[in-house]
Amino acid sequence: LLVDLDPQANATSSLGIDRGQLETTVYEALLEPEGAESAVLADVRPGLDLLPSSGLLAGAEVELVATPQREFRLRAVLQLLAPRYAVVLVDCPPSLGLLTVNALVAARAVLVPIQCEYLPLEGLAQLVTTLDLVKRRLNPPLDVIGVVLTMFDARTRLALQVVQEVRRAFGTRVFRAVIPRAVRLAEAPSHGQTIFEYDPASRAARAYNELGAELLERLGLSTVPEPIESAHGTP
C-alpha cells in the first residue's frame, strides 16, 4: 500500500491518477478513519494499492488542530488497512508539520531521502531533532531504516562533498544505491508512469532497483511476501 500524504499529490499523479476526479482520498480518511477503506484505489499497478491525495489535504492541518489525538489520525487509518498488506509506504510532504508528524507516529521506520545539494543537508539536522522528539514522546519504536542519496550529479564537487558528509554522519545507514539526477526520471511523472515503465533500461531505473533490493534486505524480506492477516496489525 502506498499512502500519499503530500497535499501536492505527486505520488498520486505520477501513477497516472487524475486527482481532480477522486471522490474520496486520504483527506477524508484522516477526518473519518473508519471510512478509510473506501478511499483505497486497488491495483493501480500489479501488487500495489494507493491511498491517494488531493489538494484538499492542504487544509487538513488546520482542521485537525482541534481534533483529539490529532497526531494519531494516520495510525488509526493504518490500523484498519495495514493487516492486508506486506508493506505500507507513506509519502510525506516536504515539511515537518502535523501531516509529517502523523506519518512518523504511525510508522515503524523512516526512509530519509536527501538531495545531493547544500540546502537539503542543512535541513537534515532539523529532521533528526524532530525524529528524536517523536521517538521519545509519541512513538518509541521509531527508527531510521536508511538514508538514500538522490539527484546525484557526479560532475559537481558539491554533490561529492554531500555524499561524503552524509556517509560520515550516518555510516552504514546510508544505502549503497545512489539515485542519479536524470532527465528520464524527471520526464516519467508527466506521462503518468514510473521510471520502470517509462525507461526500464535507464541508469535511474537500475538505481531504484538496487535501492529496492537493499530496502527489502533491511526489512528482512528477500521478496515481498503475501500479507499476514492480523486483527491488530500496525504499519
Rank of each mutant, 00 (worst) to 15 (best):
R137D: 14
V174M: 03
V88P: 00
A82Y: 01
R184F: 11
S53L: 04
V87T: 03
L22T: 05
Q115M: 01
S202E: 14
E210L: 10
S14N: 04
V88K: 00
P235R: 12
E187S: 09
L121D: 07
A107M: 04
R108L: 09
R176K: 10
G212Q: 06
L31N: 08
V87E: 01
Q126S: 09
T12C: 04
A154I: 07
R136P: 07
L149M: 08
F152I: 04
M151R: 13
R155D: 05
G59I: 13
T67R: 13
T129D: 15
T67H: 14
T25G: 08
P227Y: 07
V112K: 01
N102V: 09
I114W: 02
I195R: 02
L142S: 00
E117M: 04
G35N: 14
E37Y: 10
T172D: 15
V178S: 04
Y27T: 12
A177D: 02
L138A: 11
I228W: 12
S14G: 15
P225F: 11
I179C: 00
Q115G: 11
R75A: 10
L74M: 02
A107S: 12
P33M: 01
D199K: 13
L138Y: 06
L50E: 01
E214A: 00
L133N: 10
A154K: 10
G55R: 15
A177T: 02
N102Q: 07
T67D: 09
A154E: 11
V40S: 00
D143L: 09
A60F: 13
E117P: 02
A154F: 03
R75Y: 00
R167C: 01
S190I: 04
A204D: 04
E23F: 11
P141M: 06
L160M: 13
Y198Q: 01
S202M: 10
P68I: 09
N10D: 09
P93T: 05
Q21A: 15
E23Q: 15
T223K: 14
A86G: 09
E34P: 03
A204W: 06
T24G: 13
V105T: 08
I195N: 02
A60K: 08
E217G: 12
R70C: 09
F175E: 04
V147L: 13
G16S: 05
L96C: 05
L160P: 00
P68M: 11
P33D: 02
I195E: 07
T172V: 13
Q193V: 03
I17R: 03
P93D: 06
E165Q: 10
Q8E: 11
A9H: 14
D4R: 07
A182E: 14
Q164A: 15
P141T: 08
V26R: 00
C116I: 08
D91V: 09
G192V: 02
L211P: 02
V147M: 03
G97C: 03
T25K: 08
A125W: 07
T150L: 09
L81G: 00
L185W: 12
Y118H: 13
T223R: 15
L30I: 01
P113I: 06
F152M: 03
R137E: 14
G55D: 12
L64K: 02
Y208C: 07
E23H: 14
L121R: 09
L127V: 13
K135Y: 02
R157V: 11
